[in-house]
Design a protein around this nucleic acid. Structure first.
Lengths: 122, 122
DNA sequence: TACACCTGTAAGAATAGCATGACAGGTGGG
DNA sequence: CCCACCTGTCATGCTATTCTTACAGGTGTA
């Protein structure tokens, strides 16, 4: 899924899901939804250490969920502002199945069971 | 999100995201999309150990993404069949923000910055 | 110079998650 | 009885994630 909501590849999907599967990072995204902010201030707002927040922001950015830009304030201080990216992801069985299809099979996707009556109930 | 796609609470959302943020479990869901199956057979199909698959299925079921039922085959053998639940989750900044709002704040949501001009660029 | 801000990174400890192998119990059929 | 299936659980390592503390720089103002 790029900026909008096309179909994500397996790797993209995993990166996004892993990035969001954490209460802290979820809070970070939620906080940025209320407006952009720079790292130090956001750390104070959320009550977490700046290095930790920094780490979380990196993961969120790598997943394309937030974007950050280094900005020079009027006083010449460097401040890194982050804002949420307008992502939109549909999570359904079909979407997951298509994403998995693009995933490099670590080991045998396994021979699809030949004919297969094994999943027939009764 | 119940069976369909209502709004998930913070805990639900985290459970679902954490359950899906794993390549193995993603493959499990994808495999079940092609039809229901029982644990041992599915383990062979996916090329993973049965105890491990069992663990993953438990997490997926706890998240409401798959449902399992113990069934007695015609020969009297107990087989646990799993199938995907028809889930449908929208992942957008707004949804995340609303979910986080229901999340128990581990520590101070932090005083919302008073008036806040800090996020004003320039 | 000292202070109060800011960014960026690294080393280390504590913790959670993943994965394996082995066990106990059940069934039916040769 | 023995073998081939099945479910369910546990003790054990191993790896990845999470988080803290501590650095090294940069700016502007008193």
């Amino acid at each position: 899924m790029g900026i909008a909501g096309s179909e994500p590849s397996g790797e993209e999907l995993l990166r996004v899901l892993a990035a969001l599967a954490n209460p802290q990072r979820l809070r970070v995204v939620a906080a940025l939804t209320r407006g952009q902010n720079y790292v130090s201030q956001l750390a104070r707002d959320l009550g977490m250490s700046r290095p930790l927040l920094y780490l979380h922001l990196q993961r969120l950015e790598a997943a394309g969920l937030v974007v950050g830009r280094l900005e020079l304030s009027t006083e010449g201080k460097a401040m890194k502002y982050f804002e949420v990216a307008p992502f939109h992801l549909e999570v359904t069985p079909a979407v997951l199945a298509r994403a998995v299809a693009t995933l490099a099979e670590t080991q045998a996707t396994a021979r699809e069971r030949p004919q297969d009556e094994s999943w027939e109930v009764r």
